[in-house]
């Protein structure tokens, strides 16, 4: 029962861990270059959740400096994650661009087929 309570109270951390591990798993286990990038994005997304969880306060507002608002969320992690999202988008788009070029050069986006065509690239 106690364990369940801990779980319930920290469920978004567990989601974070789940996202992180499944993302990493996809990166490692999948041979399709695009699916790998999907995994990578999941992996990065988990970080957003990790940062935002402690920053968000239930019922809190945006940090507006005024008498009428007593409870507000910490803005800094939100801003940080804005940056991280930008980085993530940039990485994903560059990765996809690379995959397009790889497809042009090798005619496939499957890792094993690429290595079969070019054994030394491994």
């Amino acid at each position: 029962m106690e364990m369940l309570e801990t779980f319930a109270a920290h469920y978004n951390y567990f989601i974070t861990i789940f996202l992180m591990i499944s993302g990493l798993f996809i990166v490692i286990a999948r041979g399709n270059l695009i699916k790998k990038l999907v995994g990578l994005s999941l992996f990065q997304t988990s970080v957003y959740l990790l940062y935002l969880t402690p920053a968000k306060i239930l019922g809190g507002t945006a940090p507006i400096y005024d008498e009428s608002y007593k409870l507000y969320s910490n803005p800094l992690p939100h801003v940080l994650m804005l940056t991280a999202i930008v980085v993530g988008v940039a990485t994903l788009s560059l990765g996809l661009a690379l995959v397009v070029r790889i497809k042009e050069a090798y005619g496939t986006v499957e890792e094993d087929e690429i290595f079969a065509k070019d054994p030394e690239a491994e």
């Binding site: 990166v27 560059l94 995959v99 070019d118 690239a121």
Partner: peptide, 10 residues
């Protein structure tokens, strides 16, 4: 080089 860059990216 493309593949190397991709692997490095990951």
């Amino acid at each position: 080089a493309l593949l190397a860059a991709y692997q490095y990216l990951i």
